[in-house]
């Protein structure tokens, strides 16, 4: 069914570009404190890279990249990372998301612990945004034979 709509130019170009867009998204997540961006923007770009393959090659083929049910699970997992980091700080005797206390478990200085804490939170937010956006796309298209 998808072969009817297949546009070889769009399909091939998106397959070539998708990994690079994904890497750019990871760059946005990891460099959140030097340049604009951070978890949310990076997560959106990651979702965009995945949706590009879904749009161009058809939903069936794109299951090879990320399966249908995985989006929701990844979304929950991202939120878990975010809250896990926050509650870890609470357990260590500080406030919610009080990163500097992470230095008690991680073998780094207080400043570096702050750095790592922010990184964990941003990775969590990125995964959550990506998973949920892909899940929304898949749920909207459920049962559509042309997808």
């Amino acid at each position: 069914m998808t072969t009817d709509f297949e546009n070889p130019i769009v399909s091939l170009v998106s397959r070539v570009l998708s990994p690079f867009i994904m890497l750019f998204a990871l760059y946005v997540i990891f460099h959140g404190h030097y340049s604009p961006g951070g978890g949310f923007q990076g997560g959106t770009m990651l979702a965009a890279a995945i949706l590009l393959v879904r749009l161009s090659s058809g939903s069936e083929v794109a299951q090879l990249q990320l399966k249908r049910g995985v989006g929701t699970i990844l979304g929950s997992f991202g939120v878990l990372i975010y809250f896990g980091t926050g509650f870890l700080c609470l357990l260590l005797g500080g406030k919610f998301l009080d990163y500097e206390l992470l230095a008690r478990i991680l073998p780094v200085s207080k400043v570096m612990a702050h750095n790592w804490g922010i990184l964990f939170v941003e990775i969590g937010v990125g995964i959550a945004v990506m998973g949920l956006l892909v899940a929304i796309y898949d749920d909207l298209l459920e049962g559509d034979p042309d997808a």
Partner: peptide
């Protein structure tokens, strides 16, 4: 800083056009 914004803008523009075209 603005180059990163431009790249993100270009990517989202491309994906939007492809989606509507499909």
């Amino acid at each position: 800083m603005f180059i990163d914004i431009t790249l993100a803008y270009a990517v989202l523009n491309f994906i939007g056009t492809i989606a509507i075209a499909k």
